[in-house]
Design a protein around this nucleic acid. Structure first.
Lengths: 218, 218
DNA sequence: AGAGTAACCGAACGTTCGGTAGTCTGGCAG
DNA sequence: CTGCCAGACTACCGAACGTTCGGTTACTCT
């Protein structure tokens, strides 16, 4: 790290309820995690020092260890949260009942919404490289998710609702590659040219399932 | 970094021509860059130490400074190479002549091919976070590229070849998000379930422009 | 043979890293 | 009122970081 520190990411601000005890601007694991995820996403996990986290949270390095066991636990907490959200989608009725193509479209849309809702956690998950135990565990669960949606695509092709000749594995990778790419530019708030999550999911599903070109072609 | 070192990435192997002078297994900037890019992609730029690079290249840390000015120059060399390749596409005839929709499709296909051809360099480029000067410069040029293809999408919609109502900026982001996602799983060689670059570009263009669903829908 | 040089090395540099030890403090339960 | 302790602090640790430096090796050229 050589760079200029681009100013703190804004202290605390999370944890709306129940400071329980302690001083006035006290931290919980929750508020600390929120700050950490934010900083990790700006600097990268490896590029973030405990000093950076402490400065952003408004406490000292050593105080962080009062709440969590270390840097890696913060990462584990964040990616676990993201993964639980993603796997939750696969258990929803819309992902379990009906024709495979419709279930696939449901999962695609819901994944978009989930990504936007848990944007910082999912962003972090998508950048994990497998350098630590927590990262490798996360990669394993991600692979499991990818496998499940590839099966869904395979079923949809078999049932004849998607074009024949599509490679289900490749299709799933590309489609969810598009979904995941949202995390690289989407910022909540929607002001300016910002898009609302629902519109975003609609636009993406339209491109993926109906294509870009005008239907009366040739 | 706490992790276990997952073994070296394989030494040298590049630099086919003209060792000019020096010892038998000598390094050029070129071969060193090839090794560095490989390691950066496995460990992440921040997660890679000069020790890691030295070990992978089969020389000592200090010897690296005989070839390059430091860690950041290696990054700059790599992402510059990737960016030059991408911008080169926009100057090709297929990207400058004809209907905008066809030009857009051309750029999408060529970007896929370029990404596969320069996979390590482009992968590195796509992971840049903006923590150093070299990274921020790269991000600026990337933004410029994104802007150019968004203009292409806008033209194609105006000309009536793409569905009306599409947001050109959003469309460009999603489409090239899908293209870029290839770097996260594609590995060259093609053995097993591997795909050839041409097939990959065809499959992606088909999904993006024609959609997944079977045409005789209603 | 001797000069010149590209490539490399080992040892050390100042700095920053993630993490630990011990202390102070303020609000709450008794 | 008092004792407790969660939660913060200051001070520090050994290790690892990117980088520098003086010196050595192995080669080419004259």
């Amino acid at each position: 790290m050589v760079s200029t520190p681009p100013a703190a990411v804004s202290a605390a601000a999370a944890s709306t309820a129940a400071p329980t005890a302690g001083r006035k601007d006290s931290h919980s694991v929750e508020s600390l995690l929120a700050v950490a995820v934010e900083v990790f996403n700006v600097r990268g996990y490896d590029g973030t020092s405990m000093e950076d986290l402490a400065r952003a949270a408004g406490i000292t390095k050593s105080s962080i260890y009062h709440h969590v066991s270390g840097k890696e636990e913060l990462l584990r907490l964040a990616v676990t949260r993201a993964l639980d959200g993603l796997f939750g989608i696969l258990d929803e009725p819309g992902a379990r009942e009906g024709r495979a193509a419709d279930r696939l479209e449901y999962v695609v849309r819901r994944t978009c919404l989930e990504l936007v809702e848990k944007l910082p956690h999912v962003t972090l998950l998508l950048r994990v490289r497998g350098n630590t135990v927590a990262e490798r565990d996360a990669l394993d669960r991600r692979r499991d998710f990818d496998h499940r949606v590839a099966e869904l695509a395979a079923e949809a092709i078999e049932e004849g609702d998607l074009r024949a000749g599509l490679d289900p594995r490749l299709t799933a990778r590309l489609v969810f590659g598009m979904v995941n790419s949202i995390s690289e530019w989407y910022r909540p708030g929607g002001r300016g040219a910002g898009v609302e999550a629902g519109e975003l999911a609609d636009a993406l599903a339209a491109i993926v399932f109906e294509g870009l070109r005008n239907p009366p072609r040739r």
